[in-house]
Nucleic acid binder design. Structure first.
Length: 480
RNA sequence: CGGGCCGUGGCGCAGCCUGGCUAGCGCGCUUGCUUGGGGUGCAAGAGGUCCCGAGUUCAAAUCUCGGCGGCCCGACCA
């Protein structure tokens, strides 16, 4: 990949990304298992914070968590024709268990629509059973040809929501409600701007009527699908015989949805904010929000400084880096690499002045603040950083989106990879949802990411559009 | 699965072409002293199936063949 003109990286972006993941102590390749990775405590803590944000929103909208088996009878996948066709190439299949060849192999779930469809058929009889709103936090496995840490690993962690409704309208409401939740978490929590939209027919989930996605732009201008929400129609309802008796006593098939986000979000987070010095974590997701590095020379200084550091740390909820035998400089670099939003310096000079020096990870700006009210200063800095990261990322998205008036102009822009034209850009144009369009941009290794539901430059709004008209705005970009 | 690069203490690498000393270096780690406002310095130390297998040879990290694994670029995909 040629170095993108819109990123200041000195190194190749892929290499840079790898370095940040490793140096930020987020994860490492599993080595012993092809295409898998080990998520280390730093990375997992970010995932836990994301889980908490998402799960709270799911609960608040009436969803309940449940758990379904890892192994799925192979025949289940065959029940939905498009679904099996879409997933067959990347399935891992268990054929031997207990030392014997199995009569019917199991597949390790690549996603759980089929087994959940099976149970929906047992659990749903009446309109009174609907809507059924379930979510599962789980691992899934897809034998991808090419893997990249966090962005595409063979095994990954995710949440998958599965719901059943009595009408298509209600199902579609659910699909868009979830898409809004995803966008809200991406924007407000991750500080990662996204474009909400409907996928083209060529790009939709195998077995869905329509798929909706949030698409983010990484620092090199490549798109990243950060979450999907699917309108499954009655496809799985019919495949698994999920029927209910309506108020009129008629048997009907349910309308289903499914939706998910994965540990891929962490990859997106890194590629959105981090810099050459290492990880940059938005305050709302940072496991450690602030650290105090005490500075002292003599023993009597040491006592006074540490005492003050502990006091301030308690007040602001910071961590004190009181490791002996490490110079302050080494500690600054350490926390910088790990992406801690605010690092405070506290030495004899500050002590004498009643101050403490605050340093923000994103801007690198140092500011001495009074020890009285330091909690408020830190909170303000964290808040400013959260907003600053979001604003910077949103501006990058805006600045690197170009408009085109026709598919021909889209092609012309993609052909020209200069910074002003197609180099690391989102290209917006009115396009028909036609596989021919997908095929044409694919010539340039780009794809129709989605057809936006709201005007990207109006900021995050609620999804209001249902159904795709013949020609509508589309985002075309190269993607991970 | 195609093309390219690679596999040597925890990490990053040199050595391989042209086979031969006790397999080196940097970082990290341990111990002690020192230092401390952006990667202190010194000293001593621990740590190795040179990816695996077969072959050639008196002798293989090095040469040959086969495998496995990783990264980057493609195709596939969250």
């Amino acid at each position: 990949m040629p170095e993108s003109p819109i990123t200041p990286r000195s190194k190749d972006f892929a290499q840079w990304y790898q370095d940040v993941v490793l140096q930020g102590d987020m994860a490492e390749p599993a080595e012993v298992v092809k295409g898998c990775m080990v998520i280390k405590p730093n990375g997992y803590a970010v995932w836990e914070n994301l889980q908490r944000e998402l799960d709270g929103r799911f609960k608040a909208t009436g969803h309940q968590n449940a758990y379904f088996p890892l192994l799925i009878p192979q025949s289940f996948l065959r029940r939905e024709a498009e679904h099996v066709e879409g997933f067959a190439p990347e399935l891992a299949v268990v054929t031997v268990a207990g030392g014997k060849e199995l009569e019917e192999p199991y597949v390790i779930r690549p996603t759980s629509e089929t087994i959940i469809g099976h149970f929906f058929s047992k659990w749903i009889q009446s309109w009174r059973d609907l809507p059924m709103l379930l979510n599962q936090w789980a691992n899934v496995l897809r034998w991808e040809l090419r893997t990249r840490m966090f962005l595409r690993t063979t095994e990954f962690l995710w949440q998958e929501g599965h719901t059943a409704h009595s009408t298509h309208e209600e199902a579609l409401e659910e699909v868009l409600r979830i898409l809004d939740i995803y966008a809200e978490v991406a924007e407000d929590v991750m500080a990662m701007p996204v474009v909400k939209g409907v996928k083209s027919q060529a790009e939709k989930f195998a077995g869905a009527l329509k798929s909706y996605s949030i698409e983010a732009m990484m620092q090199n201008g490549l798109a990243l699908q950060a979450g999907t929400s699917h309108d499954l129609g009655q496809n799985f309802g019919k495949a698994f015989g999920v029927q209910f008796q309506n108020k009129e006593g008629q048997l009907e098939y349910v309308w289903q949805t499914s939706w998910g986000v994965s540990t891929r979000l962490i990859g997106g987070l890194i590629m959105t904010h981090s810099d050459d010095k290492g990880l940059v974590l938005p305050p709302r997701l940072a496991p450690v929000k602030s650290v105090i590095v005490p500075i002292y020379r003599k023993d009597e200084e040491r006592g006074a400084v540490l005492e003050a550091a502990q006091r301030i740390a308690k007040e602001v909820g910071a961590k004190v880096d009181d490791r002996e035998g490490q110079s302050p400089g080494a500690k600054f670099f350490h926390w910088e690499r790990l992406g801690v939003p605010v690092v405070m310096e506290l030495g004899p000079r500050d002590l004498a002045a009643g101050k403490v020096v605050l340093k923000r990870r994103d801007t690198g700006a140092k500011e001495p603040v009074s020890q009285d009210g330091v909690a408020a200063s830190v909170a303000a800095a964290l808040d400013a950083m959260q907003k600053g990261l979001h604003a910077a990322a949103r501006e990058r998205l805006r600045a690197n989106t170009v408009l085109a008036n026709s598919i021909e102009e889209v092609e012309s822009i993609l052909r020209d990879s200069s910074a002003e034209r197609g180099g690391g850009k989102f290209v917006m144009a009115y396009l028909a949802d036609d596989p021919a369009c997908d095929a044409r941009v694919k010539e340039f290794k780009a794809s129709v990411r989605n057809h936006p539901l709201v005007d990207e430059f109006d900021g995050p709004g609620k999804c209001i559009v249902t159904g795709a008209p013949v020609a509508r705005r589309a985002v075309v970009a190269k993607a991970y």
